[in-house]
Design a protein around this nucleic acid. Sequence first.
DNA 1: CGCAATCTTGAATCATTTCAACATAAGTGG
DNA 2: CCACTTATGTTGAAATGATTCAAGATTGCG
Lengths: 217, 217
Amino acid sequence: MKLQDYEMYRQIVSEGELTNHCALIVSGCASRFKTLANGERQINSFHFRGDMVDLQSALMLKSDHSIRTHSPCRVARIECRAVLQLAQQFPEWARVLWFDTLVDAAIFREWTLNVGRRSAVSRVAHLLLEIAHRLQDIGESDGYEFQMPVTQTDLADAAGLSAVHTNRSLQTLRQRGLVRSFGRTMIVLDMPAMCAEAGFDRNYLYPAGPRGLPAAV
Amino acid sequence: MKLQDYEMYRQIVSEGELTNHCALIVSGCASRFKTLANGERQINSFHFRGDMVDLQSALMLKSDHSIRTHSPCRVARIECRAVLQLAQQFPEWARVLWFDTLVDAAIFREWTLNVGRRSAVSRVAHLLLEIAHRLQDIGESDGYEFQMPVTQTDLADAAGLSAVHTNRSLQTLRQRGLVRSFGRTMIVLDMPAMCAEAGFDRNYLYPAGPRGLPAAV
DNA sequence: CGCAATCTTGAATCATTTCAACATAAGTGG
DNA sequence: CCACTTATGTTGAAATGATTCAAGATTGCG
């Protein structure tokens, strides 16, 4: 295992690349994304301190997506072999890793719903609420106020919207008094209304844990 | 383990439900989906013979999504406990199950890209190509010709489009000579053009396997 | 201070949805 | 085998929602 520091907006992993390491984020914010031939980008997930991103590399030779930092990041790079051995030797660890992947998958499903079926305003609201919860988990938010970890352009790539329309959707949320923001600070003013607008149900982030096991990894 | 038969358009699992069993599809076609409060539906994946759908139930108490049949289906229902024990006792099995979940996740990522960033015509083309490959895998297609397992309305719910626009996108593909179809029969006439239109790269379906292991489950 | 990135705005265009109607196919019972 | 019914597919026209482009305002950084 080796610690490695990345600057803001650096690509940690590139689509199609052969991977030898899994990456655990020690500090900062990163995202996983895929791109189209014309360069359009779809962000699949955001990741923060404590997230094991790229866990799939343990079993898959090539990465089907890229990973990029949205801030300076400290990353612990763990050899795939080591992760595999862990899973091989300790069934409890195999289960924890599997569970982590299952949670990932649940988040992807929710995002597909978000991008596929929700209105622009709802999509943006949903993303904000997910970020609020994720940051709360790691003690960087009280669940209402937080520092936006990404730009509106990146938010747009996560929402499947243009940057301009993402901006306008954000304004709608502000005008309706659901959020307030200045600079990078974002504050959810009316949580019930936000959840209603977003159709947000936190369960997908915190699935009732492994049978007979604590849910937390 | 118990075999169970379902009619067409029956819900096998419902969102929020407590689950005791994992489901393996023995025959037929099913889909996983999530719904919005207003009833709009987003299909997350299609499943065919041999697919372990609902594998997540092994570790998660509640289901975050629903599963529905698109044809009469025979399903093998396996107790979650049994699946867990398998993983617990045999590291190879733990690895296989984990790998299956990782492939699932890769497909979800591709779908999010599809729905979030591709044009209507490309989305539909991409879905058709995925279905063609999946059916080829189980010997129900030569990769070009197959029986559409779902209606256009369901295709629309997978593409994140309205049924009407899905129909028109399909017509565009026909007019441009990329596919031909009559009744439920669908034929890809110009595979290179289809792949180009869809931005289709089969790798996400067949990730290079577990290190030192055959990829197939 | 000045540059570069990010955010915001307006107006024109384009893609997609909606609605409502009709056409076709598939399945059911007489 | 036909008439009936229902599900699915197709069409056109109007309305909506989102994108694009190009410009200006603001912020953060060196």
